[in-house]
Design a protein around this nucleic acid. Structure first.
Lengths: 149, 149
DNA sequence: CTGCAAGTTAAACTTCACTTCAACTCAAGG
DNA sequence: CCTTGAGTTGAAGTGAAGTTTAACTTGCAG
């Protein structure tokens, strides 16, 4: 009967290193969940820390919150995610990561080659990979990252 | 005496794949330069295309325009950058890129390990590298990316 | 029961990297 | 000259990812 110890938003902020305002924002955006006390204060289960960790890690590799939200939506709604749930998610992300790493390596090699030799020209060098946009920064011309035609 | 053929903003947009509005924006932000005709229209030297290429490539690896501006500031003001100028710049960026790749590889390995095993906890796993923030997305808590203390 | 730190909300504000707009000028062909 | 298309400007708009603020409520120690 050990009561599930719940964490306050303050606790979560300290433990995750994410600002309280960001945690509320993530909740509004459907990335994390909390229950409420009688007095309407947020209480978090410890496993939400894992979600937050995942969010920040994914952000570091240039993934948008939207994509992260979709990924997290695959975790079970009604129970604490198991090791297996996380393992599945993480396997999928490992593949994303591999693709990104490969792209950066191409970039590294060609950046040196092309700029070094002075030929740097968007059309001649194939620095552009239409399959996978690294930063996925959303707005912007996107013509280079994801060229038309 | 072959006159240096200058390109209009329209030419530049087509050749670089970057929107005219973005080119004007880059100029306002000090990333590229142009001269003006008598009628105040922009005219670009061909080597500005190289700068633009560099900008877009750097953006793809998650570098902010601010950092790119600083890097480009190292190129000579009064003459067309030589192969050597670009080679120097590109060597520095290769190092940045290597660091980013290394970070992503750590991320890949630990993401799989840590999330897979269920231990994912920001404090225990060392997914955080205070030296180098990958995305450098500017705003935000930054506590994880660049923790206090 | 009081005091007060820590919590709550909605809404406004911020930054980045652009794009869009309105009003205008320039360059070139007929 | 006139029209047309390409160029110019500054200002405002956009969307993502938050932060900040103001006004208010809860939880708990003394």
């Amino acid at each position: 009967m050990s009561a599930v110890e719940l964490l306050t938003i303050g606790d979560m902020a300290v433990r995750s290193g994410v600002a309280q305002s960001a945690l509320r924002y993530y909740e509004r955006e459907g990335l994390i969940r909390s229950t409420r006390t009688g007095g309407n204060q947020r209480r978090y289960e410890r496993h939400e820390l894992r979600r937050i960790a995942f969010i920040r890690i994914a952000q570091q590799v240039g993934v948008s919150l939207e994509e992260i939200r979709e990924a997290l939506a695959e975790l079970p709604e009604n129970r604490t995610p198991t090791k297996a749930d996380w393992a599945r998610l993480s396997a999928r992300w490992r593949r994303k990561l591999e693709a990104r790493i490969a792209m950066m390596e191409r970039l590294r090699d060609q950046l040196t080659g092309c700029i070094g030799c002075g030929c740097l020209s968007l059309s001649r060098c194939k620095l552009i990979n239409p399959e996978d946009r690294l930063a996925a920064r959303g707005t912007g011309p996107q013509m280079i990252i994801n060229p038309p035609g």
